[in-house]
Amino acid sequence: MIKVKDLRRSFGSVVAVDGISFEVEKGQVLGLLGPNGAGKSTAMRMITCFIKPDGGTASVCGHDILQDPLGVRRCLGYVPENVPAYNEMTVGGFLNFICDVRGIKGKNRKKALDRVVPMCSIESVYHQTIETLSKGYKRRVGLAQALIHDPEVLILDEPTDGLDPNQKHEVRRLISQMSQDKCIIVSTHILEEVDAVCSRTIIIARGKILVDSTPKALKEKHHAGLDEVFRKITKTKGN
């Protein structure tokens, strides 16, 4: 459902993403793993059509990111890093705005809200303004926003960053729950997360793909925990 072909992007003289290619199918949860500044967010921003690639292309559900960016945006849900949201709005107002933009109206809107609000457990803060929410709630509002149109493709940039262990567990449970009928990309530098939710993992550093495998195969191959494998791969292969 997601096909990435030789995607590149640089900022000035810094090459952020240097020709990455991969494919993700329905039912897969792909963990994009890498040290900070490896190019994970940049890659995600290109797939979600926020920034344009310098070279290469990608397609999501058959829509090309260069030819049909609106089609791409319609069929994916995206939670950017740090989960930006309009702080002065209430949770309800914010979700209704997303419905407006996505053209979800009338009965469908009610259905969508009834599905997504309990799913992300944000009933209790529905009428609160977003700036008054704790980090955990903000993140769940961000997730609700991405799930409201029941997208086939979900892209989450560090979805558990800054959450407490209970909240992390909660978000991971949500991701696993949805994984069967969706195609999900999760970026992270937390290794236990990959173990917990991902069916496949790609390790990138300095904009290049170093490993494309499954967490299980990686551990077996190197006879070590993911932590050690990660250090080994990103430190030796990158140089």
């Binding site: 921003r45 979600t48 059509c49 926020f50 609106l70 945006r73 319609r74 995206y78 950017p80 930006p84 949201a85 309009y86 997303i98 933009v101 996505r102 926003q145």
Partner: peptide, 9 residues
């Protein structure tokens, strides 16, 4: 929030 706005349709 521009990242949110510009990744909506």
């Amino acid at each position: 929030t521009i990242e949110l706005l510009c990744t909506l349709p």
